[in-house]
Amino acid sequence: MPKHIFRLVSLIAGFLAVTIIAIPFLVPDSFYRFGHYRANSVIEIAAQEPVLQTANYCKDCHTERHAQWSASNHKSVTCEICHGTALGHPQKGKLPIPKDAARLCTLCHEAMPGRPRTQPQIQVAQHSSGQQCNVCHNPHSPKIAAALVKVAGNAAAGKRKAADCAACHGEAGISPNDTWPNLAGQHAAYLVRILAAYKSGDQKDVAMTPLAQALGDADIQNLATFYAGLNCKGAAGGKAAGDAAAGKVLAKNCVACHGETGIGSNPAWPNIAGQQPGYLVNVLKAFKAGLRKDPMMAGVSRGLSDTDIANLAAYYAAQNCQSPKQGKAKP
């Protein structure tokens, strides 16, 4: 073999030898351990930190909200859908409370071709005339409470039972006292809800709690039917300390549930037109202080000053309890 060939072949052989020897050293660790890939990359990927924390992560601090949410029909909508991912919270600060509920809620609830029938959907234009959803709906428990309670009591039986209540609420359901509510003409469904709440302890009152605990479910139905059937004409309206005109301006925020003059069409919520002003003041303050629990009222009362409360009470106390046509009905 001519020597240039020999040298050439040697060169090539040397190059190949170096390559073949070098390659195993260049193969990354853990390559080929399970297959044609770096086994360590599986470890690296599995070690990444989850960003979305799940509702259990929120439970310990936001116990009350969590309990309310997990008992509601919104329990499939997890915390982080609306409030953002919780990684780094609370160390790195608060999570946002959605400002534009009308935009957020319609992601799921705007009526749209393609959405299954079982999904609750609204015609946005006809539903709330541009109001935010959380005016009426509690996002953590959006179904409107007690709206579906059916009241089927006996008014006569209710009248007999009502003898025990007359001392405070008046024989005709018109309270003689500024601080106790009138009951005549009130929504039966609302009355049932509140009595049941006293009975179960969800709502507490020195006088009402023992009285309500003594009532059976049938008694509650009968009482509610009786008072709902009474005429509220005799409501005095009382003398109020606040400025009714200023109250009227504030009352615009209450329209959605309580109507323009305090007469709402939804039986879940109370009529407040012509109600005792002292009672209205007390109740609003109780909501504000968290003594009376209602997620919606807690939210709207939070921003009210004592003067605002007095003004609102004065406005509603001065309204006619019998003008149902004035209130715009909003289902």
């Binding site: 020597k3 240039h4 050439l8």
Partner: peptide, 15 residues
């Protein structure tokens, strides 16, 4: 490039 071989004789060229 010659790899140290300057051999261009006919038998080598045949190769």
């Amino acid at each position: 490039l010659t790899l140290g071989s300057h051999d261009v004789s006919e038998p080598v060229m045949r190769f």
